[in-house]
Design a protein around this nucleic acid. Sequence first.
DNA 1: ATGTCGGCAAAATGCCGA
Length: 260
Amino acid sequence: MKIATFNVNGITSRLPRVLEWLEESKPDVACLQELKTSDATFPELAFKAAGYGAVWHGQKGFNGVAVLTRGEAPPVEIRRGLPGDPDDTHSRYLEAQVGDLVVASIYLPNGNPQPGPKFDYKLAWFERLIQHAAELCGRNGPVVLAGDYNVVPTNEVVDIYSAKSWMHDALLQPETRAAWRRLLDQGWTDSILKLHPGEAMYTYWDYFRNRWERNSGLRIDHLLLNASAAAALESAGIDREVRGREKPSDHAPAWVVLNA
DNA sequence: ATGTCGGCAAAATGCCGA
């Protein structure tokens, strides 16, 4: 079973790229982020025609997450939004059941500029994720937390081409990394890192400054596996070529294959 | 501070979020 995550940066303008990628990569489950469209305008029928059922949590203009599944059975929604803050209006978390698998599509706040209220919101949202993830981690069956975490875990080459111009960015701050570490320490496996240590496994290249052409990338899209899913991990990768196409997202899809 | 996008409010650009 192939499970992928893709920050599409606007599903309305990105739809041709996303459909093309689904056709090529054929994930069984696809978690999308940054739909930037409302629930009413999500392109459900286009995905259905491509062979994918969907659940989605949209928002006009920004944010928005979805889970797609290939074939007959659509995903079954478990929850939308994280517990812990009834005043949080952002569409950033969608959890679904796909057969025996529990999967979450996550769009963690960017947090820039830092310091400031947006960074505070990022850290607070992260705490709510950590709280909720603790229950999921101990589940007997497989769980995959997939999405754009807006975290560059380390300054190593696997995570970033160079930290120099990103030192003050919210994605690299010690508080951000400490939260990431606490999440992983619950028992999650960072699947891309596990199978590709030491390689440059970037998933995001800024539109600015020819960052794609220079391969000046960051690893910020992650697929975390609980023990049951980690025991089934067969392979993992990045569909880099998607970033090099016409009118691309600034992210490339990342994926894992679990046996059975 | 800069650069490039997507989407919005509004009717062309200027703003926000990234």
